[in-house]
Design a binder for these strands. Structure first.
Lengths: 205, 205
DNA sequence: GTCTATAATTCGATAGAC
DNA sequence: GTCTATCGAATTATAGAC
């Protein structure tokens, strides 16, 4: 009577394709990705990809949506905690993003590039405004800054200080002569540093 | 006897094509750009594009190189000034980058995306390491931080705080409900704010 | 559901007239 | 130098056998 529980989540062909698509699309972007490469990565045939998802674009939309979700989920989880201090929220954002980005370093560049390429496609993307502007987090920043400074500056800084090093990592690792492990170590240091820096900004003046 | 001076720099067909290519490539990236679009943007024919530049890739390499130059020139101009203070250097970097990025907001996302897509292509890209690691700027940061913190953190922060808002602007303008003019105003405010924030980081502890 | 083979389309590049 | 017309390669999508 009970519905059969799907135990092996990733072994279905559909999931294999989606996972392969996520990997290849996120690394190369939409235009530079060939459906053949996705099929190969998934270990299946090209025709099968079109059997499950009707087109390259349909498949891309799914991957893109899931990637954006990952990106926004970090913020959404933190923004409306009522009981935590502002500093604790900043710590949580930095910590969670660094975890996410160590695992998926291509994520931000992919998301931001594709949004810039097709802004109209993500125009509707629900009320993202409300997520930030009406959040408890945003209220806390406004209180602390006391109208001395636009709260958006602080939001930009929190996200930017966390995300930017990953976006620039190819350049940074070359410029700084860093091995991957050294880069990772730097990012781990930032879990503590970013909240301190943001604190300094909030206490200014 | 004297070489003829080229007065109308931009009116030559070759320049028109390069300018169109810069615009389209920078907006869409290499893979998503069609040579036909460049030709149309330049107001010339597709065949002519291949007459002047042998291939799409050759044309791209030129544009890419010029874009990277723009990006690095800002740093290069500031890094080895002997007579300015660290704070003055930070002011100069923020100020010059904000000027550059207000005019060419697509620049950073383009450069960073293409580097990530083809790291080997930019591997040789001269001794970028030396430009930073042996600069007067880097020495000044090391002195001020007194080994309490890796100087690369500060470099990341200076560039990141300046560049990231432009990278994320499509999302930011939506999230913050900003018009272009309001966004520009925020960026202008950051010319003063970024040096203050960096100062705060340097004086910590 | 999965495959092979192929149709249909897109796009970079070239031939050749002017 | 500049154009029109077209070739050829690459790639998405589909038809049809199993």
């Amino acid at each position: 009577m009970a519905k059969k529980v799907k135990i092996e989540i990733d072994s279905s062909t559909e999931e294999k394709i989606k996972e392969a698509a996520r990997k290849v699309f996120t690394k190369n972007g939409f235009a530079a990705t060939r459906t053949r490469d996705i099929a190969e990565e998934a270990g299946i045939n090209l025709a099968l990809l079109n059997y499950y998802f009707r087109s390259k674009e349909k498949l891309f939309d799914i991957v893109m949506h899931e990637n954006m979700q990952k990106f926004l989920m970090v913020l959404h989880g933190v923004f409306n905690m009522e009981s935590t201090s502002l500093t604790e929220k900043v710590e949580a954002i930095a910590d969670n993003y660094i975890n996410l980005l160590k695992e998926h370093p291509d994520l931000p560049l992919f998301v931001l590039s594709e949004i810039r390429a097709n802004p109209e496609k993500f125009a509707l993307s629900m009320g993202i405004k409300k997520i930030l502007l009406e959040s408890h987090f945003y209220k806390q920043i406004k209180e602390r800054t006391k109208a001395k400074i636009n709260p958006l500056h602080l939001v930009m800084n929190i996200i930017g200080l966390t995300v930017f090093p990953f976006i620039a990592s190819p350049l940074l690792q070359r410029v700084g002569n860093l091995k991957q492990s050294e880069f990772d170590k730097l990012m781990d240091e930032r879990r503590k540093l970013i909240p301190e820096w943001i604190d300094g900004m909030l206490n200014k003046r």
